[in-house]
Design a protein around this nucleic acid. Structure first.
Lengths: 209, 209
DNA sequence: ACCTTTAAGTAACATTTATCACAAATACAA
DNA sequence: TTGTATTTGTGATAAATGTTACTTAAAGGT
């Protein structure tokens, strides 16, 4: 089952042999919605390959502030983990299951080995870096150039894409945390969006038009 | 002369043979302060290795908004260029000489080739990604968690480090552009910082304590 | 020394975001 | 159904940032 998932999600980028090796070496794990998958202070010993579900990657600073950076989907890996694995970084990031998810954990040693002797892995990592890079840039754009109401709408819109549904199940408080603002601000802006007929509000639920 | 510089700045990470090859293949270029080094819309054909000076990397959106992301120093390369070279990215970034600078431009093909057959180059690229990644995260922190006065002081402080001098030569307007705010706001906050004895203001010049 | 240009200071006001306090609405359990 | 906990709505107010318009100061050229 896991093997089939691995095949399905990764055979467009990783070669047969490597997938087989990953299956043999990797540890399969499952997480429920809102489970914390990674919470980093010290270097990681494993990097995750996402098989099913979605994961959100959050930034966290020393004062406990938090901000959503981006989402991971099946077939992707978290470059942050790479950085943390390989690195000297002191970055604090957190990975939380956006919904029930499963993944394969790979020991750092292999990641290093494959990087030197497997073309498809090298490509995979490079592509991952590029994708994440672009997403970080977009996060920077959002923060630097957009007002909160725009950021909010974009956040909602992205969620509809991610979950493939116009209806989002979420509390205002949770949105506030992801966007690093307060619940009151979010409620207010949501109400404005509703008045502009861009969304429809219910308790624990938002419909995005 | 270029060869010596290359040696000096890159021999801690790239092997002898590769440095020789870079010297033979690369194009040496010099830039004056404030020269635009890269202005991206379409994919790049070369990636730069910085030899002397400093370069600032800016983000630019469609409406002409701008934001300083980070500085590059000698011995570094711009991962953005990699992304742009290899990629599908539609990112707009700009690289501007923070002071007189020199660099070597390397054709993409080589970058690709070396990535597959030279360990030191692979390492170099990987390290570059990691360093930039961390800096992007820091940029995100700044934007998400810090108020403008803190961002301003950090900006000034970073400049003193970069130029190795307590005295910075800048105009308020330039700072405003880098931090994506208005000149008036910067002037006001600078005055506050001065009142708190953290800096001393003169025309075109700021002393940071 | 005078004029011109550029940079910086500042007051007044607008907008955006943050914060507090509490009321209203909804869901959920007993 | 009733009571309780949770979520959402909203007014009042503060703080941070943005904007406009104008003044003052400094630098540089003639």
């Amino acid at each position: 089952m896991t093997k089939q998932l691995l095949q399905e999600k990764y055979n467009h980028i990783l070669d047969e042999k490597l997938i087989k090796e990953i299956f043999e070496i990797g540890t399969f794990k499952t997480f429920k919605k809102d489970d914390i998958i990674i919470d980093i202070n010290q270097p990681l010993q494993h990097i995750p390959l996402l098989l099913t579900g979605h994961i959100k990657i959050l930034r966290e600073d020393n004062e406990g502030n938090e901000l959503l950076i981006y989402f991971l989907e099946a077939g992707e890996t978290c470059t942050m983990s790479l950085t943390c694995c390989l690195g000297t970084t002191k970055s604090k990031i957190r990975a939380v299951a956006e919904e029930d998810s499963s993944l394969v954990m790979i020991p750092v040693e292999n990641m290093q080995k494959w990087f030197n002797n497997n073309d498809s892995w090298r490509n995979f990592i490079l592509e991952a870096y590029q994708t994440r890079f672009d997403e970080m840039l977009e996060t920077i754009d959002n923060l630097a150039f957009m007002k909160m109401d725009e950021r909010l709408y974009k956040y909602l819109y992205n969620k509809t894409i991610l979950h493939n549904s116009k209806i989002i199940i979420v509390k205002h408080q949770d949105i506030a945390i992801d966007l690093h603002t307060s619940r009151v601000v979010i409620s207010r802006l949501l109400k404005q969006l509703e008045n502009k007929n861009k969304i429809k509000l219910s308790r624990n639920k938002i419909e995005v038009f």
